Amino acid sequence: MKAAVVETFGPPETLTFKEVPDPVPGPGEVVVDVTAAGVGYVDGLLVQGLYQVKPPLPYVPGNEFAGVISAVGDKVTHLAVGQRVMGTAPGAYADKLKAPALICLPTPDDMSDAIAAGFAISYATALYAWRDCGKAQAGETALVLGAAGGVGQAAIAVAKTMGLRVIAAASTEDKRAAAMAAGADEAVDYTADNWRDTLKALTRESGLDLVYDPVGGTLAEAAMRSLSPGGRHLVVGFAAGDIPKVGLNIPLLKRCAIVGADWGGEIRANPALAAEQFGTLLGWIADGSLTPAPVTTRPMAELPQALRDQLDRKLVGKLVMVA
């Protein structure tokens, strides 16, 4: 089979496509013929060796997938050859991948493979952050930073399903329009000098209840200063490239909380939570209360440029590579 292979850590442009052996499922595993694979900011960091965890070389990148099961291992009873599945597992940028059967979710009949491939990580992270970390309550007001990206649009969709009022922060008119189309109630330009004054006006001076922050950088402190007493700043990632150093006088004086929302770390420590989260999310889709945001697609051959565009924050919405 053909796969994108990282042989040495470096820029996405150094990725090569080569023939590698087909995977063979072991007990409790399945092989999936990959039809679509999501692109995330972490993928671009991993291929450069810049993420907190470095996979052993050589390795096949990609962590979100959708496709069709082509082989099942012993002790797999709930999945069958020919079944459409989605999930998160390493090695998604390839014709085939091997994954534990327990992490493969049957793809809903009315969900395309492209939507399915961009769903698992972003939407589960949003649910974990809002519900489990932020204790969000219907009627509260939340700010989503980086709101036009795939992570931001997922956060908006889940927040609206939970009954939150969402203010989207994005840098350009097109990106703010995309965030509004994803369901945000208001949008602000965080590059404007007076953007915190705009937030005050939108919250009638009371401040924000929650901040969803996958960006970091200089935006983090400004957003945190806009929280109300009892507010929660949810740390999701650092797409800006800089890990902010925030003075602890801010949470002290604001009487607010900084909460880490590392979904991957939580699932590694508490794997059973994943099944509950995906059950909740897919249940919302089934009853019509959650509509995943649209995605854009590119052919897998364009993966190096896609990762570069993701790192340079040129993308609007979720990008998915397709076979």
Score class of each variant (00 low, 15 high):
152 G>R: 04
125 T>S: 12
219 L>Y: 08
291 T>S: 13
177 A>M: 06
129 A>I: 07
15 L>G: 08
59 Y>N: 07
301 A>G: 12
181 A>H: 02
8 T>R: 15
35 T>C: 06
186 E>I: 00
79 L>F: 04
85 V>A: 01
11 P>C: 09
58 P>V: 11
180 M>K: 14
44 G>A: 14
110 D>P: 01
84 R>P: 10
46 L>R: 06
73 G>M: 07
167 I>L: 06
170 A>Y: 03
287 D>G: 01
68 V>K: 04
225 R>E: 15
170 A>H: 02
24 V>Q: 08
242 D>G: 13
144 V>S: 08
178 A>M: 01
175 K>Q: 03
215 V>M: 03
268 R>A: 15
73 G>N: 01
290 L>M: 03
232 R>Y: 05
118 G>F: 12
203 T>F: 06
63 N>M: 15
308 R>N: 05
273 L>R: 13
153 Q>K: 13
134 G>V: 04
203 T>H: 07
222 A>V: 05
229 P>G: 07
100 P>S: 06
176 R>A: 10
183 G>H: 03
147 A>V: 01
74 D>W: 02
18 K>T: 15
202 L>P: 00
39 V>G: 00
12 P>R: 01
282 L>T: 07
119 F>H: 10
216 G>T: 06
264 G>F: 05
312 D>M: 09
17 F>V: 14
262 D>A: 06
318 K>C: 01
136 A>C: 10
23 P>E: 11
2 K>E: 14
144 V>F: 09
17 F>K: 02
152 G>E: 09
278 F>T: 03
275 A>C: 02
160 K>N: 10
13 E>M: 12
132 D>A: 14
295 V>A: 10
142 A>E: 04
93 Y>F: 13
19 E>I: 09
231 G>V: 05
197 D>G: 02
170 A>V: 06
21 P>T: 04
60 V>H: 00
150 G>I: 03
254 K>E: 12
230 G>L: 10
101 A>N: 00
256 C>L: 08
259 V>A: 15
92 A>K: 11
302 E>I: 00
161 T>G: 00
144 V>P: 00
172 T>G: 02
273 L>T: 13
11 P>R: 09
99 A>V: 12
269 A>F: 04
119 F>R: 09
134 G>Q: 09
73 G>H: 06
9 F>C: 11
114 A>D: 15
258 I>N: 11
84 R>I: 05
170 A>I: 04
29 E>R: 06
88 T>L: 12
16 T>A: 14
105 L>T: 10
270 N>F: 05
197 D>V: 07
196 R>D: 10
41 Y>C: 02
22 D>Q: 14
222 A>C: 15
21 P>F: 07
280 T>S: 06
253 L>I: 12
303 L>D: 08
210 L>P: 01
109 D>S: 09
112 S>K: 03
74 D>A: 11
123 Y>W: 08
139 G>C: 06
161 T>L: 05
65 F>L: 04
220 A>V: 03
31 V>T: 04
243 I>S: 04
275 A>S: 11
97 L>I: 05
209 D>L: 01
